[in-house]
């Protein structure tokens, strides 16, 4: 396991030392959401209604932003060859990279979300469900994103390609995430709010398998 944590630690260290990491994603998150009222007007009631959906859409886009360097940076300097060749199973390597991506991008976004919720006039009662849902759902974004990032390794304009590949896979996260976040705001028939949080968790757990396995398979092809 020490190999696994060594990789997580190295990637977090690299992300915090070099620009273009999680800080930029949070900035993007902020700016995308701030643009929305310019488009639809500053009506606070309207903003309240669309806040959970907008926050989730912005979260997906922001998480995508840093994915293109996930494997590409390692490919460019030759590290990827050695990671693929190493005794540690490639699936674990992909998982480690996805975890560090989540720690440096997903987690800061979740932490920043309440502030943006405030700007979109999301009631304070809605903050905890929002953060909870994002905490449960955001790992899926990094895990599924890792597959897209692995597929696009060595491709020119890979960043754009990753967005096209990955966004369809983000649809369930968006649906269950928004539904779980809205539970505190609007009356939901039955216990759909709690159910959607469970379903969101299920998506994340499924991604925990799909991400590493799919990512490793894609990387094996990519280096060859």
């Amino acid at each position: 396991m020490s190999a696994f944590w060594a990789l997580v630690q190295r990637d977090v260290r690299l992300a915090t030392r070099v620009g273009g990491g999680g800080g930029m994603a949070v900035f993007f998150f902020l700016i995308v959401l701030s643009i929305v009222p310019f488009g639809i007007g500053p009506d606070l009631n309207l903003l309240t209604r669309i806040a959970p959906g907008m926050l989730w859409v912005a979260l997906l886009l922001s998480a995508l932003l840093t994915l293109d360097r996930l494997f590409q940076a390692d490919q460019e300097d030759g590290t990827l060859d050695l990671l693929v060749m190493a005794p540690q199973p490639l699936e674990l390597t992909v998982l480690a990279k996805a975890i560090s991506h989540w720690l440096t991008t997903g987690l800061p976004l979740v932490v920043a979300a309440p502030l943006l919720g405030l700007m979109l006039n999301l009631p304070l009662d809605g903050m905890l469900p929002l953060m909870g849902a994002m905490l449960v759902g955001s790992p899926a974004l990094s895990l599924l994103g890792a597959v897209g990032a692995a597929l696009a390794v060595g491709v020119r304009r890979g960043g754009l390609l990753i967005s096209l590949l990955v966004l369809p896979f983000y649809v369930p996260v968006l649906i269950f995430g928004v539904s779980a976040s809205r539970a505190a705001l609007v009356a939901v028939p039955g216990d759909l709010g709690g159910q959607s949080l469970l379903l969101l968790g299920a998506v994340s757990l499924a991604s925990l398998v799909v991400g590493p396995v799919g990512g490793a398979a894609a990387l094996r092809v990519a280096v060859k």
Binding site: G19, G20, G23, F27, S34, L44, M119, N121
Partner: peptide, 27 residues
């Protein structure tokens, strides 16, 4: 409410974005 999208506040927010973009460029 903590946040109102009035002209002055919103302009200040855009100024913050320009600052952040400038810092991002340096980094």
């Amino acid at each position: 409410t903590y946040w109102v999208w009035d002209a002055r506040t919103t302009s200040t927010l855009v100024l913050l974005f320009i600052y952040l973009g400038y810092m991002a460029l340096w980094v």
